[in-house]
Design a protein around this nucleic acid. Structure first.
Length: 282
DNA sequence: CAGACTGTTTCGCA
DNA sequence: CTGCGAAACAGTCT
């Protein structure tokens, strides 16, 4: 579910509420959620919150709590004074004082503030490990550059190294580019004017340059909208992201292209639902 | 009721 | 090593 803009939005939303707070209790409400010694977090203070691609890491002194939301994970903060921190309007299941049936983990802080890890499909992971080990995690060590740091030279080289794979699959590969997921890969391809089912090896240097800019602009715009809420995603205070209201192709099958008016097409590429404009992308 | 679909990652196989 | 397809799981939609 959450891609780079969603995870970064959650990180920014959590920062003012959680950093500097001491953890009083950690309760797992599902046997498969929580790896490592969760109880060791009790008594530690959250010193920083980092993000590596789509992985969020709460740093608690010498310990780290690495959280991956996968498809349907949420991190929702509730203020400790009994008042709802959340803005916006009440909504089914989300505004009720948690935990609810999808709440898998509850962090309670010494000031009574609470952080809920909700995850309908239970693909998400929460792992406690020494903070110095985080960089060594295969997932973290293997991450490619984020769109912000992406260069045309790097992309051209990697596209050739993976010339047999389709572009969409390449863009979703976190070891090549970190942070893109199904929504922003489609949006990036549209913005660059490139068809997502092209073989990576056929992408010209000019198209690679456009892809770099397109990825950066797409992520920037998504951050400004606090991400995309298809269904489960919420910010740290329970609000939806609004990017999909300005999306060019994602989930717009049959609707007119915002640029040329032609109907948006949907196909399956690499097993993933893929959207594009056959008139604007080549 | 069956089958397709869903934002991610990892694993096994060719 | 590259490149697929499936699996992990639960719920919604057609």
């Amino acid at each position: 579910m959450p891609e780079l803009p969603e995870v970064e939005t959650i990180r920014r939303g959590l920062l003012p509420h959680v950093v500097g707070k001491c953890i009083a209790e950690v309760v797992s409400r599902h046997p498969k959620v929580g790896q490592g010694r969760l109880e060791d977090l009790v008594g530690t203070t959250v010193t920083a919150i980092q993000r590596y691609g789509k992985l969020l890491v709460l740093e608690c002194g010498e310990l780290a709590c690495a959280i991956h939301l996968k498809m349907t994970g949420q991190l929702i903060w509730w203020g400790g004074d009994g008042s709802l921190v959340m803005g916006g309007h009440p909504e089914e299941g989300y505004l009720q004082r948690e935990p609810h049936k999808h709440t898998r983990l509850v962090f309670t802080f010494t000031d009574s503030g609470r952080l809920f890890f909700n995850d309908q499909r239970i693909f998400g992971t929460v792992r406690v490990l020494p903070v110095r080990e985080v960089q060594k995690l295969a997932f973290v060590a293997g991450l490619g550059p984020e769109p912000e740091q992406l260069t045309a030279e790097y992309l051209i080289e990697r596209l050739q190294a993976r010339k047999g794979t389709v572009l969409k699959s390449f863009l979703l590969d976190q070891t090549e580019v970190a942070g893109l997921g199904n929504i922003y890969a489609d949006e990036t391809c549209f913005r660059a004017g490139v068809l997502p089912d092209r073989r990576s090896g056929t992408i010209t240097p000019d198209e690679a340059k456009r892809l770099v800019r397109a990825a950066q602009e797409t992520i920037h715009l998504a951050l400004a909208h606090q991400g995309s809420s298809e269904r489960d995603y919420r910010t740290a205070i329970g609000e939806k992201g609004t990017y999909l209201s300005v999306a060019n192709v994602y989930r717009r099958t049959g609707q007119p292209c915002r640029t040329c008016g032609a109907p948006i097409q949907r196909v399956v590429v690499g097993g993933r639902s893929t959207h594009f404009c056959s008139s604007c992308q080549h």
